[in-house]
Design a protein around this nucleic acid. Structure first.
Length: 112
DNA sequence: GTTGCCGGGCC
DNA sequence: GGCCCGGCAAC
């Protein structure tokens, strides 16, 4: 964890004017924190998901000559829309990705 | 080349 | 259980 070997933390090293984190980029460095949609939507104890798991699944299992496969694109996430940690943060900030993205798994923060 | 993910590997 | 890459498919 904390994979950051080839990265020299600037930490205000050689800087003539201190007290001024001025990156090579001009303009005001505006940092925008994109709040993920995982915000607790009014759910403290989360009464959702009441028990009831037991039945269900009865048919639909039978033998289907052809499995449910969409005719076009599906099964495989068709990247068209969906900013994920990788796109949003970038490889340089892998430490900010969600665990799933870090491990190259299905993104958990931006579950599209 | 890049991105997103499954499958598989290592500890 | 956490941690990561190889390789695939979609761009």
């Amino acid at each position: 964890m904390k994979r950051k070997p080839p990265v020299s933390i600037p930490s205000s090293s050689s800087n003539s004017s201190s007290t001024s984190f001025t990156p090579t980029n001009s303009s005001s460095f505006s940092i925008s924190w994109q709040s993920p949609p995982v915000t607790f939507t009014g759910n403290t104890v989360s009464p959702t998901k009441s028990q009831g798991f037991g039945e269900q699944r009865s048919q639909t299992i039978a033998v289907l000559s052809s499995p449910p496969r969409a005719t076009t694109a599906l099964s495989r996430k068709v990247r068209g829309e969906g900013k994920k940690c990788r796109k949003v943060y970038g490889m340089e900030n892998r430490d900010m990705w969600c665990t799933a993205c870090r491990w190259k798994k299905a993104c958990q923060r931006f579950t599209d």
